[in-house]
Write a protein that binds this DNA or RNA. Structure first.
Lengths: 186, 186
DNA sequence: AAAACTATACCGACCAGACGGTAAACTATA
DNA sequence: TATAGTTTACCGTCTGGTCGGTATAGTTTT
């Protein structure tokens, strides 16, 4: 990503921004090519020039989403370098910041994935990598997996809006998770 | 639900059966009123007579799904009556049988919920009840929640096809979960 | 008991709108 | 002037939903 590339066309980023805005503002179902085009001040043709299909657009959204999450995780992991279970702890800690990512955006991706499961491939890859790292670092791999899964359980519950407790309680639980991990490392 | 009621019209059940078949056979995106009607040998009008809207149909699917899962959980809970954490252990144990419910069916509901989150209300209610029971029964409520969440994490991973391990490993993990619960009860 | 009436369950043609995608023409830039 | 980027106009399809109509069974009226 040299500067040249970015200047020539930051339309892609603009379009992805617009797609997110549309998802947040109008709901996951309204992330259509027309709506996105309208929002970013481009024509539909212009959008389709940058993303040759709607699936490509959704893919772009997911990849960018994973990218930013990855960054957060990486920061947390850096801070825990040398300590036990750095990846697991980073992932769990990062999950506290998930609220910043609007559920509607994630739901838009999920809805698209219902029609074309391959769209989730980047997510699968990310999970596979996390899995490998966590397993390798863990003294008790099974326990590590349980705690990793718990994080996802909490995330999905809030994503779908079916969590039976408020956000603060969820944060408590995440802290409890982290405590568990530290205890298990000893 | 006296017998009379059921005999007068089992169309609703027939339609729900068809909707499931369509979801499994053609994928979540193809669960349309036309497709369901075709599959159950009714006309679209007939389907809409029984379910006044597509949302109503999806709602029907979800409610029936929850009903059957509830049954399984109830059986497990009955078998654990008097022991500690009966609900939590029942829910976790029942999650082993989730594979029997085709992901496509669940994805169809999820996709519809992206357009109308209220559709998930029955699920929210079910979760709230599980939550209340589990919390009340647990000696360590936080830990119980972590394990409950872990179950959901595993379920969602396989539902979305992004689990980084095979089904056997997942079952191992569930057993590990159960072991954890028993240990924590002492 | 025959006729008139009503309710239930269903049919199937049709519609309006949304949506993804295409193609040709235009524009600016290097 | 060639190429990248974008616009405009249009198309075809899919889909949820409406609506008038029908057949059958049951109920009331005469």
């Amino acid at each position: 990503m040299p500067q040249a590339d970015r200047r020539i066309s930051n339309s892609r980023e603009d379009i992805l921004d617009a797609a997110q805005r549309v998802a947040v503002r109008e709901g996951p179902a309204h992330v259509t090519l027309d709506a996105v085009a309208r929002d970013c001040g481009l024509s539909k043709g212009g959008v389709l020039y940058n993303f040759p299909s709607k699936d490509a657009l959704i893919s772009g959204m997911l990849e960018r989403l994973i990218g930013t999450i990855r960054l957060i995780i990486e920061q947390h992991r850096e801070a825990r370098k040398g300590q036990p279970n750095p990846t697991l702890r980073a992932v769990v800690a990062a999950s506290k910041f998930t609220d910043e990512f609007d559920p509607n955006v994630q739901m838009a991706i999920l809805a698209a994935a219902a029609q074309n499961p391959e769209l989730l491939e980047p997510l699968r890859a990310e999970f596979a990598e996390q899995y490998a790292n966590i397993q390798q670092e863990a003294k008790d791999p099974d326990l590590a997996m349980v705690l990793w899964a718990a994080t996802h359980g909490l995330m999905f519950q809030t994503l779908l809006g079916i969590a039976p407790f408020p956000a603060e309680r969820q944060n408590e639980l995440i802290d409890r998770l982290l405590a568990h991990i530290e205890k298990s490392a000893r």
